[in-house]
Amino acid sequence: MFTKSAIILAAANLAAAHTTFQSFVIDGKDQGQHFAVQTPSNGNNPIFDVSSTAMICNGGKATSDQVEVAAGSSIGMQWHHNDPATTSGDNDEPIAASHKGPVMVYIAKAESNGEGPVWQKIWEEGYDGTTWGVDTFISNKGLINIDLPNLEPGDYLIRPEMIGLHEASGEGKAQFYNGCGQIKVTGSGTLSLPAEGTDMTKAYSAQDPGVLYNMYAGEKTYTIPGPAVWTGASSGGEPSTPTTTAAPVSSAAPTKTATPSAPAASDPVASPVESAAPSAAPSSPASDNGSALPETFTIEQFITWLKATTGSSASKARRHARAFHF
């Protein structure tokens, strides 16, 4: 049986099991606590009001620092339960295991101060039916590591975020944790952020399926709230225009047959001549006396055959042959 004091203590521990974004990790090296990271105004406490301005950068103020990172390269964002971090003996480092939910990362131009519809979601991890984004976050000891899009050089705000859903079955009970860091993107990237993005004070509703959610109901599906991941982040650029497939071209185009030239007098004739013969000429190459032209013949053979079948003299036979235009 639980005592009242034990319940109060457990509730206090649960309420204190929070987390904050504290440093960048570049090429495996921690850049230092709060270097180029805006310190939140409310400590490690969560945000419950999704329309609050704290949803922009958790009340953090801009610093004079920046972390340089090349477009398309890896960037790490380190979180801890307490600020400053006291990892030794802290069972809730980097966050209590009960605070399951999704993890997301947004980016905006620094000149916007994060205000208005300027944010693009560039990465997210939700629930695959077994593991939550926060589970992976805990396994990675509070490090969120992503690849930047191939952005054009410039100054940006990067905003990691997670949602604790352990009490989210009640409206307005989901716990939001976010923070902003300041980066200078270098290199030869060419991607520009879209002109229209997401306003973080309007990104979520308290009634969104991914915000009002009972994680104890045994559901195996989960809808990550907010906008979809920007296509420029997932593909390295805007989607290319689909290539129209051309109609197949035959590898052997038909060749136009040239009109055959008249054969020379000595050339064999390939087939019987189809021109109309003089009335004395027979309609068939075979004569009544059984003589016949071969399948192919020369002009001289044709004259001999014509002479034999018509009884003509050689001179007449030649005249008849000329009538066939040989």
Rank of each mutant, 00 (worst) to 15 (best):
T86L: 04
A174Q: 03
S112R: 01
G164W: 00
W119F: 07
E68P: 02
G133E: 07
G181L: 03
A97G: 09
A70D: 06
V118C: 00
W123S: 01
V118P: 09
Q78R: 05
W79F: 15
A62M: 11
A85W: 02
W132S: 02
F176P: 14
S112G: 13
V134E: 07
A54V: 02
G170S: 08
A168Q: 10
A97C: 08
M104G: 03
V67S: 05
D92H: 05
A168T: 02
A108G: 15
D135P: 07
Y177G: 06
Y177F: 15
L157K: 01
Y106T: 02
F137V: 05
G116R: 12
N178L: 13
S52V: 06
F137S: 10
P84A: 08
Y156Q: 03
A96R: 14
S52N: 14
N178W: 02
L157D: 11
C180N: 08
Q120S: 08
S139I: 07
S51T: 09
T63S: 10
T131F: 13
P84D: 07
P94Q: 06
S169R: 04
E125Q: 13
M162C: 13
W119V: 08
L143R: 14
E68L: 11
S73T: 15
D135A: 03
E111T: 13
N91A: 15
T53A: 14
G126R: 06
G172P: 10
A96Y: 08
G114L: 04
M55E: 15
I146W: 02
D92N: 10
A110R: 13
G172R: 07
V67M: 01
P102Q: 08
G164Y: 01
V67N: 00
T136F: 04
D65G: 03
E93S: 13
G60V: 13
K61N: 09
E68W: 06
D92P: 12
D155Q: 14
P94D: 10
E124W: 14
E125S: 14
H81S: 05
S139F: 02
G181D: 11
V118Q: 06
I107Y: 12
T63C: 03
G89R: 00
A62G: 02
H81E: 07
V69G: 09
D83I: 09
G179I: 05
I146E: 04
F137A: 03
G59F: 00
K100A: 10
S88I: 01
